[in-house]
Nucleic acid binder design. Structure first.
Length: 653
RNA sequence: GGCGAGAUAGCUCAGCUGGCUAGAGCACACGGUUCAUACCCGUGGUGUCGAGGGUUCAAGUCCCCCUCUCGCUACCA
């Protein structure tokens, strides 16, 4: 039964490197929704892909000594391989370097320019001439270019801007009249209060500072800057043409039913994207869901620690469906989820091995033992059957209700509730007792039939989440794939069918210790150079900057300063304001170190100060220099202090 | 600093418009059972429901205040 179309997308993955399990979670989540909708009878189109332009990629390619195109081809391949490894059923994998996408982005840009939504202006900021790059004041390091360390000068760069404010009122109206548009709803307030209600800034949509992007057709020294390039994939991928030649497929699928994205890019999908669409006179997507993140429990994932968890490693250790089960089931709707190896093992043992695997195994074993594998309905019903049947036939609707709210984890819990009910049914009916009584043979047969039927329904519902497991279970119990609409009827398993003679273990129980040994081996291989042999102390890979001349170094003046007073800056969360005595002068310096040092403990410290930094105001307070700190991978700060007693004002050179 | 969310069993969390002895899952303990992957089924406990006030016959549930945590945002020379 066709229930209409359903167009679902993931965000396109940025091709700067191999995605870890947190990034992989999104495609699996989208896949489970897409598969479930298909199972329900929707005509689903599921799109994913890669975002391949930008300065960062240009740089990465340069570092690796390949062209940007070669670089993104490699990473896009890796990403696609992982998506395939996770058994995701996307219909289209779009790349922003696809020729048709690039051509369409150029047309869209031109159209928006022609109709006055995009205008040429100036991007003002701090400019580093050698790097040909713009930075905001806050991006600068010591007032200098964060890339090369050379001085930056205030400058203007020609750039194209999109008039966001023009459509703001319409967007506010839309969000207010479509409460389901932004999910979870708590995000709606953030967008409203932080961006829409205070007034939208115009968005810079072109750059001249790098070339790895889609050129603006009528002004080719500009390339289209990220959002107009990336977001439009949702329409170009299905054949949009702003000249009115859109494909049949586009007309059928647009607007999207669901954009599934990470919570970090909600702003772009619920403000900029809808406004672009309004400018193109297209309907808005029905729903944008900013899912939470899957975080690692034992500290931040970082390459230097060698503890990054990748999907392919997980699959090697646990199998595809176990990984899919974990990421889908452990993720709450609104809060971030946690993944640790221990938690993973615990969940797999308790739910997959014990509850599900063992249920199938014991049912198949009993069918073989008592009836040579034949599963026959005899009509020997008893009262206890009613509840099992009720739970089984109600499951499909319960799962559907949860999925409708995008509560995938809860949907899975419903399915496992049915498996638990089946296990309980075995205890209630005690087939091994029935087996001892020849008179109860019909009853025994009926009980096993009911079990097989219950498992068939449960396994069928599992298809969207763990498709391989569904297949394996159905194969073991000799059941055919069942249509979604038939899952509400109990008793469709063909009576007399046979289960497999030799049940295979679906999910083997795992030993935490053994798993951890394998994990240690993996992590050791992942970051062999990150731990120094003798001390075991972690080191950080330093991103190298271009070398500078002695003369350039000489422009900076460092000195030992003594902190004579320090107080918190009231209006800010991170700032401490210190009075620093340097020789016979006292400077006021504001630093973002609250949380690492208290105002009291600062007083009396002798620290390293960059003295001749141009003064600037932070949170309304004047700062006339900078205190130097070291920062580790976790963001912990340590002030630089002289190793020997030194007087205030001693120059550092 | 602005806006918002939250603080409930060892852990993760449910508890809607206030109403009977505060719940679920996991973990733990005990009991049952043996078809099964030492599994499944049942039973059980502890909770100052973040602190302190208040409204009410009655408050995790409403109001005030405090403390702390988190999200977005600003700021982080």
């Amino acid at each position: 039964m066709n229930k209409g179309k359903y167009y679902i997308t993931t965000a396109i993955a940025y091709t700067s490197g191999k995605p870890h399990i947190g990034n992989t979670y999104e495609i699996v989540l989208a896949d489970s929704i897409a598969r479930f909708k298909r199972q329900q009878g929707y005509d689903v189109f599921f799109q994913t892909g890669t975002d391949e332009h930008g300065q960062k990629i240009e740089q990465k390619a340069q570092e690796t000594g390949v062209t940007p195109k070669e670089y993104v081809d490699g990473v896009a391949g890796t990403i696609k391989d992982i998506w395939d490894l996770m058994n995701t059923s996307y219909d289209k994998f779009i790349r922003t370097t696809d020729a048709d996408h690039e051509a369409q982005v150029q047309k869209i840009f031109k159209k928006l320019y022609d109709q006055g939504d995009i205008y040429k202006g100036y991007y003002e900021g701090m400019y580093c001439t050698p790097c040909e790059s713009f930075f905001t004041e806050s991006q600068l390091v010591d007032g200098k270019c964060p890339d090369c360390g050379r001085p930056c000068t205030p400058a203007k760069e020609e750039a194209y801007f999109f008039k966001m404010s023009k459509y703001a009122d319409r967007l506010i109206e839309h969000i207010n009249t479509h409460p389901e548009f932004i999910q979870p709803v708590s995000r709606k307030n953030e967008m409203m209060n932080n961006f829409l209600l205070p007034g939208l800034q115009d968005l810079c949509v072109s750059r001249t500072s790098f070339t790895w992007g889609i050129p603006v057709s009528f002004d080719p020294k500009h390339v289209v800057y990220v959002w107009l390039d990336a977001l439009t994939n949702y329409i170009t991928g299905i054949g949009y043409d702003c000249g009115g030649e859109s494909t049949e497929q586009f007309h059928k699928n647009w607007p999207a039913d669901l954009h599934l994205i990470g919570k970090d890019i909600i702003r772009f999908h619920t403000i900029y994207w809808p406004i672009f669409l309004m400018a193109l006179d297209l309907p808005l997507p029905k729903q944008v869901f900013g899912h939470p993140w899957l975080l690692q429990g034992d500290g931040k994932m970082s390459k230097s620690k060698g503890n990054v968890i990748y999907a392919d490693d997980l699959v090697k250790l646990f199998g595809v469906d176990a990984v899919r089960y974990f990421v889908l089931h452990e993720m709450p709707f609104e809060n971030d989820g946690v993944i640790t190896w221990e938690l993973l093992v615990e969940r797999l043992n308790s739910e997959l091995a014990n509850t599900l695997g063992n249920l199938v195994n014991r049912t198949v074993s009993m069918s073989n033992k008592y009836f040579g594998g034949a599963v026959t309905a005899t009509g020997a019903m008893e009262d206890v059957d009613a509840d099992l049947k009720a739970v089984a036939t109600a499951a499909a609707d319960k799962v559907a209700a949860r999925m409708e709210e995008l509560r995938v984890a809860d949907a899975m819990t419903e399915i496992f509730g049915l498996f638990k009910r089946c296990n309980k049914y075995i205890d209630e009916t005690m087939p091994w007792v029935l087996a001892k009584d020849e008179q109860k043979r019909d009853r025994l047969s009926e009980v096993l039939y009911n079990l097989v039927e219950g498992i068939t329904i449960g396994a069928s519902l599992l298809e969207a989440f763990m498709p391989e497991t569904t297949e394996r279970i159905l194969a073991q119990i000799g059941a055919a794939r069942r249509e979604y609409d038939d899952l509400k009827t109990f008793g469709l398993y063909p009576s007399g069918n046979k289960v497999t003679e030799k049940p295979e273990i679906l999910f083997a129980r795992l030993d935490v210790k053994e798993v951890m040994e394998k994990v240690d081996a993996l992590q050791a291989a992942q970051a062999p150079a990150s731990v120094t042999e003798e001390t075991g102390e972690a080191v950080i890979e330093l991103e190298e900057k271009p070398e500078i001349t002695f003369e350039e170094f000489g422009k900076m003046q460092f000195a030992v300063g003594e902190i004579v007073a320090c107080e918190e800056v009231k209006k800010s969360r991170k700032l401490l304001c210190s009075q620093v005595k340097i020789g016979n002068k006292t400077k006021q310096i504001v630093s973002g170190i609250k949380g690492h040092y208290t105002a009291e403990e600062m007083v009396g410290k002798k620290v390293m100060v960059l003295v001749n930094l141009k003064p600037a105001k932070m949170a309304g307070v004047l700062s006339e220099g900078m205190l130097l700190c070291a920062e580790d991978a976790d963001g912990v700060l340590a002030l630089m202090t002289p190793e020997k007693e030194m007087p205030s004002g001693a120059e550092i050179c």
